[in-house]
Amino acid sequence: MILTGLINGIIMGGILSLPVLGVAVVYGITGIPNFAIGLIGVFGGFVTWYFLSYNLVLALIVGVGVCFPIGYFLQKLLLTPISNKGGDAILFFVITISLGFVFEGLTRAIFPRPSISIALPYLGSFTVGGVTVEVIKLLALVFALSTLTAIRLLEIHTRPGQSWQATSRNLKLAKLVGVNTDRVYAVAHGIGCSLACIGAIFWGSLYNLNVLSGWELGFLGFIIAVVGGIGNIWGGMLSALLMGLVLSFSGYFLDGNWQSVLLYAIVITVLIVSPRGILGSERAL
């Protein structure tokens, strides 16, 4: 039971880590919490599902590819101008929640089914200690870890990556030295929405993806990112894995309602003990 719980927890944590990374990237760089990110990801998930009947690769490219410009232009044309006019947290909360309802409505209006299952190809399985694990289920975790490593390497070794890091550390100075901070924001938002979409695709391949899953992915992603340390992508990853394990093990003893009580009690406790999250916030604006 311990091994099964551990494996299920890691799988769940891997899937949760993708929207968490999306939220961590967007909020860590722009300072704007986008509560619509899960809905945008689910919209991309539905687009992927629609094109699956043609070709898997095409479906993934179109689905994820749709989410990048949505995030990019959302930031460039809406959120950055509002931020430049001094928009505060409440304003962004209302605007991004409204955007969430817009994408929920769009998904309902465009696609014929409110709930879908995304069939990804079978990639084989392996056995650990008598427990059989499908490779596809671990792919989300592998993808999340690869993305995280790639982001860190880009930050250290490339000019755009340094501009990205500088923008999150000191926005005013980044502008003063000549970093195109508006573009950094827009690209970060595009990447964040794409990651949420990939999270939604994995979610849809293991469970059912319905229109409302986006709220759950977005809010849970945000909460887990805060617990990890907002803007700290390693913290977000660790936090997602811990939350996955809590959900997995508590599933043996508690029903769904009590699982939520336990999960959020842990969240509150962690934030009381360590308000900057498990690994501390990297955001320094």
Partner: peptide
């Protein structure tokens, strides 16, 4: 033209060398 501000004039949590490199972005 370049302004070095009075407050928050470095990139915290970035290495000294990276602070200098990113300042030459143009």
């Amino acid at each position: 033209l370049m302004l070095v501000p009075q407050e928050r004039y470095i990139f915290p949590m970035m290495q000294v060398r990276k602070n200098l490199e990113v300042s030459g972005v143009l």
